[in-house]
Design a protein around this nucleic acid. Structure first.
Lengths: 151, 151
DNA sequence: CTCGTTGCAAACAGTTTGCAATCCG
DNA sequence: CGGATTGCAAACTGTTTGCAACGAG
């Protein structure tokens, strides 16, 4: 699932052209795996393989990939938009535990949201996606917080 | 709870000065109620009472209010940071249902997350806050989507 | 009086866009 | 070939900052 050939085919099907810049971008993208990458980081990776590529090309490609639902935008309040590869299995979303101290983002699978989803859909809202961010302190940071706990 | 006098006292306690600009800002803020206001909107409200006030003052005041945990930053991907008054009752958070079509943000109380929270804390993560956004289509928009459902 | 605060304008950073040259199909 | 795409630079937009004047305590 989600290999380069498939993405290339999908691009063509959409009427988009497959340029070397896009090919490299897709390659680097797949390297990123589950990480939450910024456009800048993606750009950096692409530049290593071809320094000629311009920033705006990456921005435009990312936009296309987002429309294709291959990546999703995430926001971790660090100043720039971050993206991650979409999960193929639509019903297995994951959540993000964000440490307020060190900034680490821990991913977490979960099934506990299903009851809540049923409740929401009962009210006539059609769920397409959801995003749960839990802010707090990871165990490492909490252990090192002597006296200064909770401010 | 959360009236102007209390906020003013808290400001002084922090060592901040209580200027007329800040007083107006707090007044307008309390008028906003539960809405998700942007700095621009707050600025607009303040300007009505005193057109002399500068934008940067509002930005700086908002920063202070955020540090005081009187307001929280929210992100609804509409281009600017939004804020809402903090809930006093820490254990009654609400979620946001965001309509992808009309952009409406519906608030929703919920208790279904408690099981999930227990699960998270069992792993040693200390929860301070959380934020659940559910993207989809509100019943109105879904009703008007003939043929074009899901893209 | 003193230091925090203000308003302004300029700086910033991430992102978008206009355009001529280029390239995919 | 023709229209999509590229790289560049310039434009944009929300937000931050430097600074002299001001004002709360």
């Amino acid at each position: 699932m989600n290999n380069q050939t498939q993405i290339v085919d999908a691009l063509r099907k959409r009427g988009n052209k497959v340029t070397p810049q896009r090919l490299i971008t897709i390659e680097v993208l797949l390297t990123m795996g589950q990480q939450h990458f910024s456009v800048e980081e993606l750009f950096h990776g692409v530049k290593q393989r071809n320094p000629e590529v311009g920033m705006s090309t990456i921005y435009r490609t990312v936009q296309i990939l987002e429309e294709m639902r291959l990546i999703t935008k995430r926001n971790f309040d660090d100043g720039f938009a971050r993206y991650e590869l979409c999960e193929m299995d639509e019903k297995h979303w994951h959540h993000h535990l964000i440490c307020l101290k060190c900034g680490r983002v821990i991913e977490m699978q979960d099934e506990y949201l299903e009851a809540l989803e049923k409740e929401i859909e009962k009210k006539g809202f059609i769920i397409i996606n959801h995003e749960l961010k839990v802010y707090g302190y990871c165990s490492d940071c909490y252990a090192n917080m002597e006296g200064e706990k909770f401010d």
